[in-house]
Amino acid sequence: MSRSERSPLLLAGLLATAGAAHFVSPRQFDAIVPRALPGSPRTWTYASGAAELALAAGLALPRTRRTSALATAAFFVGVFPANVKMAVDWRRRPARQKAAAFGRLPLQAPLVLWARAVAKGAEAAS
């Protein structure tokens, strides 16, 4: 399996793991749902977890990979406010936790670029 074939599957694995975590340990995700969103934070936690699982499945299938990869890039942009909320909420926590929360912020850009590269690779393969 080439690197270009592994990349979408690694991204799918990341999303599947994160998506499952939303159902296994929802409380940690509830805490970072921006208050401006309507309804219960738990609803948003489950919805985003389900979205990650669906995106993972789409990335795993060559036929839906391009569309799923573009949707994944948009998803990563869409959840950025939750990461900002986490960083703001954790700014007075111990150094390790604060570093983890603030460290998540710049990681969104490479994730978006990774998803876009998977989309481009899927387009080239078709």
Rank of each mutant, 00 (worst) to 15 (best):
Ala122Lys: 02
Leu59Asp: 02
Ile32Lys: 08
Asp30Arg: 07
Arg93Glu: 14
Arg93Gln: 11
Ala47Tyr: 14
Arg66Tyr: 00
Arg27Leu: 09
Trp114Asp: 08
Trp114Val: 03
Ala115Trp: 03
Leu10His: 00
Val33Arg: 02
Asn83Gln: 05
Phe23Ala: 04
Arg104Asn: 06
Gln97Asp: 15
Asn83Lys: 02
Glu52His: 07
Ala69Val: 08
Val79Leu: 07
His22Asn: 12
Arg3Val: 03
Val79Ile: 15
Trp44Tyr: 15
Gly121Cys: 08
Arg42Lys: 15
Arg27Lys: 05
Val112Gly: 01
Arg92Met: 10
Pro26Tyr: 07
Ser48Cys: 05
Leu61His: 09
Thr72Pro: 07
Leu37Trp: 14
Val77Ile: 14
Ser40Tyr: 10
Ser126Cys: 11
Pro106Gln: 07
Leu37Cys: 11
Leu59Phe: 01
Ala31Met: 05
Ser48Tyr: 02
Ser4Arg: 09
Tyr46Ala: 13
Arg116Met: 12
Ser7Gly: 02
Arg93Asn: 09
Lys120Met: 09
Ala20Pro: 11
Leu53Thr: 06
Glu5Asn: 15
Phe23Pro: 09
Phe76Val: 00
Ala31Asn: 06
Phe76Asp: 03
Phe76Leu: 06
Ser40Lys: 12
Phe29Lys: 00
Leu10Asp: 01
Ser4Phe: 06
Phe75Ile: 05
Arg6Asp: 07
Arg92Ile: 00
Lys85Ile: 11
Ala109Tyr: 03
Ala117Glu: 04
Ala16Cys: 13
Arg91Phe: 08
Val88Leu: 12
Glu123Gly: 05
Lys85Gln: 15
Ala54His: 09
Arg35Phe: 12
Arg96Tyr: 05
Pro41Ile: 10
Ala95Gly: 02
Ala12Asn: 03
Glu5Tyr: 13
Leu9Trp: 00
Glu123Asn: 02
Gly103Lys: 08
Ala99Glu: 09
Trp90Thr: 09
Arg65Val: 09
Gly13Arg: 01
Gly58Met: 08
Arg3Asp: 06
Ser2Asp: 14
Trp114Cys: 07
